[in-house]
Design a protein around this nucleic acid. Sequence first.
DNA 1: CCCGTCACG
DNA 2: ACGTACGTGACGGGA
Length: 892
Amino acid sequence: MAKPTLLLIDGNSLAFRSFYALINQVDRFVSHEGLHTNALVGFNNLLDGIVDPFKPDKALVAWDAGKTTFRTNSFGDYKGNRDKTPQELVEQFEPMKKMVELHGIKNYQLVDYEADDIIGTIAAAGDAAGYAVTIVTGDRDMRQLVTDNITVWLTKKGITEIDKYMPAQVAEVYGGLTPAQVVEVKGLQGDPSDNYPGVPGIGEKTAIKLIQEYHSIPTLYEHVDEMKASKRKENLITYRDDAFLSRELARIRTDAPLEINLDDLDYQGIHYQALIPFYQQLDFKQQLVKLANMGYVAADAKPVTQQPLKWVTLDFENEAELNRIEDVLDVYVELDGENYHRANIVGFVVGNAQVGYFASRNVDYLTQDSPVRKLLQNSVLKKRVFNAKALTVALARYGVQLTGVTFDLLLVSYLLNVNDNSNDLGQVAHEHQYFDVATDEEVYGKGAKFQIPADDQVFFEHLGRKAQTIGQLEPALMQQLTDQQQARLYTEIELPLTFVLADMEMQGITVNADHLLAMQSKFSERLSELQQKIYQQAGHEFNIQSTKQLGTVLFEEMGLKSLKKTKTGYSTSVEVLEQMTDVPIVESILQYRQLSKIQSTYVDGLLRVIHGSDSKVHTRYLQTLTQTGRLSSVDPNLQNIPVRVEEGRQIRSAFVPSHEGWSIFSADYSQIELRVLAHVTGDMEMQKAFLADEDIHASTARRIFGIPLADPISPNLRRQAKAVNFGIVYGISDFGLAKNIGTDRKTAKQIIETYLTEYSGVKAWTQKIIETAREQGYVETIAHRRRYLKDIKAKNFNLRSFAERTAMNTPIQGSAADIIKIAMIKMQTALKTHGLNSKMLLQVHDELIFEVPAEELATMHQLVPEIMDSAVQLDVPLKVETHEGKTWYDAK
DNA sequence: CCCGTCACG
DNA sequence: ACGTACGTGACGGGA
């Protein structure tokens, strides 16, 4: 008969592991009550993944009781170099213990003892009582407890993967030693993380070798005199006491005076119903979904019944049934990659709840005349989709002109809350408390395991669920849009824009590959010259692109003074290097850096993404990503093509019109963010300056530096005033301004105060917007785009300050984004109504780029500014400047 | 996969 | 006393 099982869990060790596994995202895991939950998430995964399937007979989670233990009493420095446990973790301990209880497991801690000792003691008792004992921990030293009946499960890097240690595995990593000998090794080796010393110069390798030979520390010292003279022998003798002390510190106790025994440890099983309010409090949505799928729902929840799903595999027998579809069609198309300009359609589904859903992998239904194709191209039939832009572009490649989209789940979800921007339909649905659909990861797997199911039953059911979800969510989400006064933002801006963007992306922009190739060979020659020069200046070869190696060369070998550090080493950023240009190698490195950036990101990078079929690049604009409402551009990013430095700027000469004799034409808003600032703040002084079409930075300089009208403004003061204007838009701080204009903090502070006195409307507005953010929890743009600021009331100064700057910046940056989006929609319409052949190709936040036939140039110079500056009516005028040229470079 | 760096508005 | 300008994406290096 199988032995009874006893599961012992090292609470502290695993809490720390969980916390640091997600340390980078500590601020992304915060409950609505402001509690950090990253460690709780990790710990919960651990319970789910290891404990729950284990179903032990008895179980315990052991915790440290506090800072002092018998170890600190015997050795004051024990764990003396540990940083204080971060507050973000401390606050998670109590809920974590509650989580343990709700999973049916007892917690235990004991004054003066560490979790290890509790586990050691119970494990020994369990071993003696005939249990199969399993210990789960992140602490490698626990392996000393292993016996034939005690297995140690050690978490690897993350926390969900584990290595299992039985005596054989311990022997394997410890060169044939027994678990009991682990403390002998540790005694010699010491442990920097616990701050006990061991013997200097002896690491794990040597310690194992010595214990292999002498078996233990006491016997080693019996024979120490026989060792041949060496530094090691000297150290062993000198640090004898440390070795014995460290050995004791490393030894886990098996005789702690516990007040509990095995009878108290019966595993209770999971208290499902009680977990619901607990998970709700922590905002553990995924866990709630899992509970719901098991039939556990909150007492006050609407009953979750899995909706029935009507679906069939589309075939030539049943395709006629599609003709019964009227009013509305839900559509979902699955691609085999995220870049929809290249990816293939691997499956699709159309239908609605009344008639049912029709799924297929056969793209002939799309490429050839079929009922499906007719429905998709029928403009009267309302389509409900997820990611209309991707769908439009993908279908267009199969010859289908999708029309009549009224509901885009992804887009609507993003507008309701910019954080709900997952490209996974299931995840988005779960955000809206709709659980009748799984995520792609759940169905397809991820990483190397990703696979579209070969089984039609599985694949089509998932597709059907997705399509059905879109339809099910539409009424509630459209209502929420209305409630948040965002209906017009959706119907008049974002939804029409999505099709404008689809057009621009499909149009693409032609890139002259020969030109890039010429640049490539010129640059690589120059790069190897610079490389040789740098090797010479350094005295040896090294990887210039490695910040680590570069730091060693500059700050250790060459003895330059390090001016700034990053958390991983010396900073070698431009900012730092520019202060050391008197050293020749630094100058060379700066040149090398600049050139290799252009080469790798722009020359090589662009060449890689030119489509063979049309010699164009087709970016994808992400419409549902940024926190402010701007677009972003990927694959390639065409919103950060160099312009400020001449060498880089020449990249732009590779961007050319797609027809002989055409031109590249650009139109940009002048100072749009400051104009928006003048509008939203209602500041009369700033508005006057714009109404008079003054040079705004000069005008600001005049006011904040008190320069009489008769006097000219020096370029330096104008530059400073410009920095102040930028600072205001970004949510200014004296430190930031000082750094930017190279003055001291006090002066910067004075400048800001003067600015806010001179522009009192701006001052009043910044105070008001922060107040508003605190009251409603969000800020808005002129088109009612919304951004929630969860940290606006944070106790932590940094988090709160950041939220306050965001509160000021988002209405400005976001409203500017609203304006150009409106202009783009109007522009596309105007091109059509004027019967122009010019094409809008790119958007770069405050500028639009077109390709234009020669005969339309004059018209465009007039029409484009007209459309752009009348996109919205502000209290100050909008100003637009236009340029044209044979290439993008020349359109300046 | 994260970090430092650097390109843009 | 805190540490600090807003919003993005791509690259190479190195765990």
